[in-house]
């Protein structure tokens, strides 16, 4: 009897969250880096509604995305962080256009891989000093025992 009651309570307990999630909403957020481009004519006038074509570093032949600038010649996109390298962005309007090349991720990766900030020579010297410290200590105690 107790077992049946416990089983029933367990089923009820498990079913409550499922029922709640069916009618609920969830918002999560993630802080990420976005690129905002601004396209203007040489006169400073914006390329309002200019055609934007973005090429990712891993496929320079096929557009990664096509879009349009807003009325101020601006467009914002979030590059795929799994594709480090140079992202090429082209904006055109009425026979005028330009292409910009944005390095993404490469600098960050470089900084991470070089996070110690020491040259190989410095590392060797430090290692030698540490080893010499151990050797010196050993010699010191060995000398005391000998004497």
């Amino acid at each position: 009897m107790k077992g049946k009651l416990l089983a029933t309570l367990l089923i009820l307990f498990l079913s409550i969250p499922a029922a709640a999630s069916a009618h609920g909403a969830k918002i999560s957020y993630q802080i990420t880096k976005a690129i905002e481009i601004t396209a203007t004519y040489d006169t400073g006038e914006p390329l309002s509604g200019g055609q934007v074509t973005i090429y990712a570093p891993d496929n320079p032949s096929t557009p990664w995305r096509k879009a349009k600038c807003d009325e101020n010649g601006k467009y914002i996109f979030i590059p795929d962080p799994s594709k480090p390298g140079t992202w090429d962005v082209q904006v055109r309007q009425a026979g005028h256009g330009d292409m910009i090349h944005i390095p993404i991720g490469e600098g960050t990766a470089e900084a991470a891989s070089g996070s110690t900030g020491y040259t190989p020579l410095q590392i060797v010297l430090m290692a030698a000093c540490v080893v010499w410290g151990f050797v010196g200590t050993t010699l010191f105690f060995a000398r005391r025992r000998g004497s």
């Binding site: 040259t119 190989p120 020579l121 590392i123 060797v124 290692a127 030698a128």
Partner: peptide, 8 residues
């Protein structure tokens, strides 16, 4: 020293 510098 040789091993470490060799790696570098």
């Amino acid at each position: 020293a040789v091993v470490l510098s060799g790696c570098g």
